[in-house]
């Protein structure tokens, strides 16, 4: 009686390649200015080609919004760098100020992204409170470090609760909650993989971790090779661990997320090993094609994730409503973009 409405990605690697290479070319020849529009086109392509229950997603931000946001962020960073050079006390004050406003930017970024995304003509929204985010960013991680990271899964659950429970489709809210057990299982799986890597380094290669930016007068080839291999093994182990963690936690979170009073459900059937295989083979193909196969790799990953996601409707999908919201401020968005910071939401 339960029907699964599978997510479907209808884009193709060929088509995305054309958009991607034009984005790339225009971004370079405009010295990066076009990259704001390129970002919009990329998001539009992937959103518009992702369907669930026959209806697609869409992305509505404009290149101009993104560009203004980025320009302000770059200006702020430049002011900081210049004051660090010529007026160090001001730089110290600025650094504290930037760290203090970071959660403000993050909330704005989440809201900007949500309000500029839609499904079936209804915009998403994000209504997270700032105070809670300060706790999430500055307090919980510190508490977790004080317990030697043994309580890290609690922090992760709090982040997911905050991220998902504050998202809306129109006026309809998402709801997520879960026991802590599965978060510990995923965490232990990830830690286990890293430990295997460390054991490999310690046992087989003799382990030492190198530090950057030092200049030895003479390079001892054997030592350098060992350092290189140790570094590589640890790096790969950490990357593997993160992929496996993402897969496990995604399945769990989808299963425990409900939408609205109807309690529409979600299913994710991603397999950790399949995801790992796709990530590793993508890496190899992209490296050997000098990056030209990157569009193919991106589409392949997107298609796999879509095929393994489904909506389980419980009643009509025609009843979602929302205002037509406009969010004109992309500063938060640009900040998280440039700094590469994301609240890791498995959408």
């Amino acid at each position: 009686m339960e029907t699964h409405e599978k997510f479907e990605f209808r884009g193709s690697a060929r088509e995305w390649f054309g958009i991607w290479i034009v984005n790339l070319l225009l971004s370079i020849v405009t010295l990066g200015v076009y990259s704001a529009w390129a970002k919009v086109r990329s998001k539009k392509y992937f959103y518009q080609n992702t369907f669930v229950a026959g209806r697609n997603f869409d992305y509505h931000a404009t290149g101009q919004q993104i560009l203004i946001g980025r320009a302000i962020v770059v200006a702020a960073l430049l002011v900081f760098a210049l004051s660090a050079q010529f007026l160090p006390p001001l730089a110290a004050a600025l650094l504290i100020a930037y760290v203090a406003v970071f959660p403000v930017l993050l909330v704005r970024s989440l809201r900007f992204d949500a309000r500029n995304s839609s499904w079936s003509n209804v915009r998403f929204d994000f209504v997270g409170k700032l105070g809670q985010l300060y706790l999430l960013i500055f307090v919980y991680p510190v508490l977790s470090i004080l317990t030697l990271y043994t309580t890290w899964p609690f922090v992760q659950r709090a982040i997911q609760r905050y991220g998902i429970n504050n998202h809306r489709l129109g006026t309809t809210s998402f709801h997520f909650d879960s026991k802590i057990g599965p978060f510990y299982m995923a965490f232990l799986a990830a830690v286990g993989i890293v430990l295997v890597g460390v054991a490999l380094v310690a046992g087989v290669i003799f382990g030492q971790i190198t530090s950057t930016a030092n200049e030895a007068l003479f390079a001892n080839p054997i030592l350098l090779l060992n350092l290189f291999l140790s570094y590589l093994v640890i790096l790969l182990a950490a990357a593997f661990a993160s992929v496996v963690y993402q897969a496990i936690i995604r399945n769990h979170i989808f299963a425990h997320t409900k939408l609205g009073e109807n309690k529409h459900g979600f299913v994710s059937t991603v397999k950790p090993l399949s995801l790992l295989w796709i990530a590793v083979s993508n890496l190899i193909v992209v490296l050997f094609s000098l990056g030209l196969m990157l569009p193919w790799a991106t589409v392949r990953m997107q298609r796999y994730l879509a095929e393994n996601s489904a909506l389980v409707p419980n009643g009509s999908l025609d009843d979602f409503t929302g205002d037509v919201l406009t969010e004109t401020n992309a500063i938060g968005d640009a900040y998280s973009d440039i700094e590469g910071i994301e609240l890791e939401l498995p959408v």
Binding site: A38, K39, S42, L235, V243, A279, L283, L294, A297, T298
Partner: peptide
Amino acid sequence: LVAGDVGPILENV
């Protein structure tokens, strides 16, 4: 910035 999101693992590498 120019090529966009490169996906997991490749990003670390």
